[in-house]
């Protein structure tokens, strides 16, 4: 795991590097856009944690450039600008997520893990929560590396939840994931599928848990 921290602040920069290195391993820190471009040319990075405002400019242009790299690093933007339009600009340019300053160290690590997980999902088709792993290419779920045999609709449900693990998946997007255009959606059918899926996961010894939030949606939690 290789992490690049782009942060000009003399306190925050080294702290970010040390904190991320302790939690995820191998981090470098640069302070300007220029240095960042050089670093990115020298070696590939799995994760880039970056500030928006740098001494030599707005980092949005760099985000767009990094999207072209192969393998593409996961990008987590740290921003002191909480204007929703500014956040949207960073995400549109290709950032995977943003974190508003100031933040708690645990939140930083959790977000970093989440973007890495999503990037891994994009590139390798694999995502995991606790001892549950889902391979989207093979469309197979594993608990402790043991494949889990699931009916079609339960598999689709699990995939939708795993793709957005740690976040709330709204009820209607689950409906869309499980049922096709022509399928007639039965109310409560999702709940029935979910309760069977929960039981199967529990029996297989899965430590990840599907939390139901009435009226809102579902969430795959550790």
């Amino acid at each position: 795991m290789r992490i690049l921290v782009i942060e000009d602040d003399a306190d925050l920069g080294p702290w970010l590097r040390d904190t991320l290195e302790a939690a995820l391993g191998g981090a470098d820190r640069v302070a300007t856009l220029d240095e960042a471009e050089t670093a990115l040319k020298v070696r590939p990075f799995d994760l880039v944690v970056m500030d928006r405002r740098l001494p030599d400019g707005d980092a949005v242009t760099l985000i767009a450039k990094m999207r072209m790299l192969s393998p593409r690093p996961s990008i987590l933007v740290l921003t002191a600008l909480d204007d929703p339009n500014e956040i949207a600009r960073a995400l549109d340019a290709g950032a995977d997520d943003y974190l508003a300053k100031p933040f708690e160290p645990v939140e930083l690590i959790a977000r970093a893990r989440a973007v890495l997980r999503r990037n891994q999902l994009d590139q390798k088709g694999v995502t995991s929560v606790s001892n549950l792993r889902f391979d989207t290419f093979a469309r197979t779920a594993y608990v402790d590396d043991q494949p889990l045999i699931l009916p079609r609709r339960e598999l689709a449900l699990l995939e939708a939840l795993m793709r957005r693990a740690g976040q709330v998946v709204l009820r209607e997007s689950l409906d869309n994931a499980v049922y096709g255009f022509d399928d007639e959606i039965q109310s409560n059918a999702i709940d029935a599928h979910l309760s069977r899926l929960r039981k199967r996961l529990r029996e297989a010894g899965c430590r990840a848990e599907i939390k139901a939030l009435r009226g809102i949606g579902y969430l795959m939690a550790e």
């Binding site: 306190d11 702290w15 002191a80 300053k101």
Partner: peptide, 9 residues
């Protein structure tokens, strides 16, 4: 926010 973040670290 920048000094708050610095303070937090």
């Amino acid at each position: 926010r920048t000094p708050l973040t610095r303070l937090r670290t």
